[in-house]
Design a protein around this nucleic acid. Structure first.
Length: 315
DNA sequence: ATGGGACCGCAGATTACTTCA
DNA sequence: ACTGAAGTAATCTGCGGTCCC
């Protein structure tokens, strides 16, 4: 690729001018290790960031200031006289190496940091920064994935709810029409459609199975997502141990018909149970995409706010 | 035992720069 | 050539943990 070529060329240029004198064994250790053929063979040496290490910058400035002078190949280096060099990106090989290391362990112990820095010809500080940024990027991506999967889950449940609502209405009309045709069955049919009945209306088996299928499918989505997240110590170690349980309980199979037939006053009862219901009440209007977050807060969050949900994942 | 300072690493926010369409 | 968006290296800030006195 063109970019790599540019970098390689640039590095080749830097090679002769930036390489410290061979007399300094100590400094040599901060360049490409002889045991790292992958970086040596490419002809691309270090991508030492030359802009950093302003002396006034506390810890950073404290990192081997003398070394940086020599690494820059500028003996009389003076940040006041010499403007800092432009920021340069790490080479593809360096990034690959770091990525592999990140996959193994996304936290960086001091020894490992030094070793990586040696292998890559970078400063330990650069390695640490790369890992910090990488963790941040991973976390962002993970949040996006979580959002997408939850949204998908929600959309499926909403579709299911709509379908069941229509089915319920259809059955209701059927009962009404039959009621008119069968003399003397009026009282019986009234019992069937009595919404004040404290016991839940029996749901046709096929309806129940539809609901179960959709919900179990959604649980699969969530669990799979969680399994994907298992790679991340950031995600795992920082998620509450009960997160999985929360998600599962969140998607506990709910008898949709109960929700659909439920008297509005029933929502005030048994608050703890109802707070776990994920289906919106039947009186809700058709949902628009922009209202997703609000609804999400009311349904999928177990009554928690969006902020609480963030806490959920990362606290 | 305990309080305080120094040091360190981290997360999150932000900046500065590069690359590309 | 110019420009805006996206990506990323680096910086800044605040916080918590550890060590030492």
């Amino acid at each position: 690729m063109e970019i790599d070529k540019v970098y390689e060329d640039a590095d080749d240029v830097l090679l002769s001018s930036e390489r410290p004198p061979p007399s300094s064994e100590f400094l040599d250790s901060f360049w490409i290790s002889k045991s790292s053929p992958s970086f040596q063979a490419s002809g691309t040496t270090t991508m030492v960031h030359l802009q950093n290490s302003p002396p006034e910058n506390g810890r950073l400035g404290g990192f081997l200031p003398c070394l940086e002078k020599e690494e820059n190949g500028i003996e009389d280096y003076d940040p006041c006289l010499h403007p800092p060099e432009k920021k340069r990106r790490l080479t593809v090989d360096q990034v690959k190496y770091l990525e592999k290391s990140f996959e193994v362990e996304n936290k960086l112990e001091p020894d490992r940091k030094v070793q990586l820095a040696k292998d890559l010809g970078l400063q330990p500080r650069q390695v640490a920064i790369w890992f910090q940024n990488r963790r941040a990027r991973y976390k962002t991506k993970q949040l996006e994935k979580d959002y997408d999967s939850l949204k998908e889950c929600y959309d499926k449940l909403r579709d299911d709810h709509d379908r069941l609502s229509k089915e319920n209405e259809k059955l209701r009309l059927e009962v009404e029409s039959l009621k008119g045709k069968v003399p003397g069955a009026e009282k019986q049919s009234l019992d069937v459609t009595n919404s004040d009945d404290p016991e839940p209306t029996e749901v046709p088996p096929h309806t129940s199975s539809i609901s179960q299928n959709v919900i179990s499918e959604n649980v699969m989505v969530i669990k799979q997502e969680d399994a994907n997240s298992a790679k991340s110590d950031v995600f795992d170690s920082e998620s509450p141990p009960c997160a999985d349980a929360n998600l599962v309980s969140l998607f506990q199979p709910v008898d949709s018909s109960r929700v659909l037939d439920q008297d509005p006053s029933d929502f005030s009862q048994d608050d703890e149970d109802d707070s776990c219901r994920i289906l919106p009440p039947p009186c809700l209007p058709k949902l628009e995409i922009e209202s997703y977050e609000d609804l999400n807060a009311d349904t999928c969050n177990l009554g928690s706010s969006v902020d609480d949900q963030t806490f959920w994942f990362w606290s």
